[in-house]
């Protein structure tokens, strides 16, 4: 693989990592607060459809972005109701909402546009367009660094950079703020928070809502950044892969970045059968390449995770003990 191809793959990696990263960070807030969220997938899907539809109808991707966040938040609130207020089974709630999202996105898109559950293609201001970072063109000629900067780092859409900025921001929030301290505490031992006079319910709802917002960004990126419009089931299991990445990342923000870059890389090379064939010398059938990210997800969950200790109160509704 030559340097140019390598850069192309890295460029694709970054693009494909972004929805995973945003979803992974979304799951991070929720799970750190002790709420399992298998429903990242559904929230992303809902957001992707909302963004695609509203951007098309208004011609503004920014309004579309807001719609994406609203759509995702709606699902987050239901998940909060089920898992916090009514102390239901968090896994089942997430799975259920994924089904609802899978159906309702097509239902809405079909009734709005009648194009088989797709939204019409977006262009111009109705989608996020690449941003050329300062100096990208000027230093493109510098060997090694130049092409790397202009090809890989520069030239992505707004939400890619938002995703990257969310990593240090999340780290700072979790480890350097009062809110972060309480959030981590409520996921480990909600009783410690409760007896300190802080509302467990409010903290957990806040976390679930942040998850909703970040899933909204992830979904919006799918339909207005990565692609130009919403398509049926377009998230294709990314919500689940993000969860696997979260486990791999041991629920830590920086590790989330590395884990999702890895999964993004898997997806990127799956798109390049030519590169794989040149590198390993065997031609791999296309369906096998399609399955590759999923297979590698299983491999990562099976072998590479090691001892990942999840937040101790994860998945358990909080009930005051007698």
């Amino acid at each position: 693989m030559d340097y140019a191809t390598f850069l192309q793959v890295l460029d694709t990696t970054l693009r494909l990592s972004t929805p995973l990263l945003l979803a992974c960070l979304a799951g991070l807030y929720s799970e750190r607060a002790g709420i399992f969220d298998i429903g990242l997938e559904g929230k992303m899907l809902m957001a992707a459809m909302s963004a695609g539809a509203v951007s098309y109808l208004t011609g503004s991707v920014w309004i579309g972005l807001l719609a994406a966040i609203a759509g995702s938040l709606l699902f987050a609130v239901v998940h909060g109701l089920a898992s916090i207020t009514f102390r239901g089974n968090q896994l089942i709630s997430g799975v259920a909402l994924n089904f609802v999202a899978s159906g309702i996105t097509v239902l809405i898109a079909q009734s709005l546009f009648g194009q088989g559950g797709r939204t019409p293609p977006l262009d111009g201001a109705a989608r996020f367009n690449p941003i050329t970072l300062p100096l990208a063109d000027q230093i493109a000629g510098v060997p090694i660094i130049g092409p790397f900067y202009s090809e890989v780092i520069s030239g992505h859409t707004f939400l890619v950079y938002v995703g990257l900025l969310m990593v240090p921001l999340s780290w700072w929030v979790l480890y350097r703020t009062r809110f972060g301290l309480r959030l981590r505490a409520v996921g480990e031992n909600p009783a410690s928070v409760d007896t300190a006079g802080i509302s467990v319910v409010r903290l957990r709802y806040t976390a679930v809502l942040i998850t909703g917002i970040l899933c909204g960004l992830a979904g919006a990126y799918m339909s207005t950044g990565l692609q130009a419009g919403f398509g049926k089931e377009m998230t294709a299991g990314r919500g689940y892969i993000a969860l696997a990445a979260l486990i791999f990342a041991k629920w830590r923000p920086w590790y989330c970045l590395w884990a999702t870059l890895l999964f993004g890389f898997f997806q990127a090379i799956a798109l390049r059968p030519d590169v794989i064939e040149n590198t390993i010398g065997i031609s791999i059938p296309v369906p096998a390449l399609d399955a590759l990210p999923y297979i590698l997800t299983v491999v990562v969950l099976a072998g590479l995770v090691g001892k990942a200790i999840p937040p101790r109160a994860g998945g358990e509704p909080y009930v005051k003990e007698r």
């Binding site: 109701l81 089920a82 009514f86 239901g88 159906g103 097509v106 079909q110």
Partner: peptide, 26 residues
Amino acid sequence: IPIELRTVVQGLVILFTGALDQMVRM
């Protein structure tokens, strides 16, 4: 009406019977 309505109902049934069952009981 798109056939995906089935998926919505299916998801809602799972939601109410499996996760919001406490609400229904209340």
